[in-house]
Amino acid sequence: MPSTPQGVPAGTRRSPGHRPRTRRLRAASVVLAMACAPAALAGCSLGSSDQHSILHRHSLVIGVKGDQPGLGLLVNGHYQGFDVDVATYVATRLGVPASRITFRTTPSSVREKAIEDGTVDMVVATYSITPARKTQVTFAGPYYVAHQDTLVRTSDRSITSVHDLARKKICAVKGSNSWRRITDERSIPAVPVDVATYSDCMPLLMNGRIDAFSTDDLILAGFAAGHPDVHLIGAPFTDEKYGIGMRKGDLAGCEAVNRILTGMYQDGSAGRFLDHWFADTGAKLTTSVPQFEGCS
């Protein structure tokens, strides 16, 4: 804004007879400058409305699982798995190279809180999109739609569908909803055997103390990788939409991530990640971009 008619008052310095006008003109310049200041401020503050967005960041803190083989597993101080690969791909496309990403173990129970209080910028941790969670978190994706399937001993031919789980012993992980989908939602009289974590199920299944382990196929595939004596029955019956959680309201960030995920499938990266972690596990892998949920 051209605001100061500077030369005008200066010129009268040597002619005292014109002092009143000088003052007036000087006052004019001050008023002008003041009038423009708010506009300038308004102009400056426009760009900073997306303070909490995952866009335009120098570094990112990403919440992942630390105990899920194939998805997010902490090995010798490094996280690895499909979720970690997806998170790294997305962050890189957002302009944050791998060296400036901090991964942090984010257990299921604290995911919403960690996003809300800014402990993590986004969560990529087998985080299912549900209507209730959508009220607290903005979800990009899903980057993958997993399905609940069942892992059994390869020698066990008696279980080929979820209905065959009647009177069979199944793994009931504390805090997990998967076994309830069988016993409560489908009223199949399977026998739940309580355990603390997912990883406790594998030894029980192998030594025959349980008959089946039923949860998301990607999680099962991660456990099954490298164990030829167990296999997935390939009878999926739910859709678990794994989304990328970010702070509620970061629509610009969410939309950008959705475009990146489309690219991740188009350029074949998603297929490579899936193959790398889950090939030969019996899981039916989908290598086409999932139907997005929409940013809200």
């Binding site: 939309e255 489309t262 971009v289 139907q291 997005f292 940013c295």
Partner: peptide
């Protein structure tokens, strides 16, 4: 798995353009 998700995502993406 392939056709409908892509068509749906196109709609969402156009919606994102409008919002931005």
């Amino acid at each position: 798995l392939e056709l409908l998700p892509k068509a749906y995502n196109l709609t969402l993406d156009s919606g994102a353009t409008v919002r931005q």
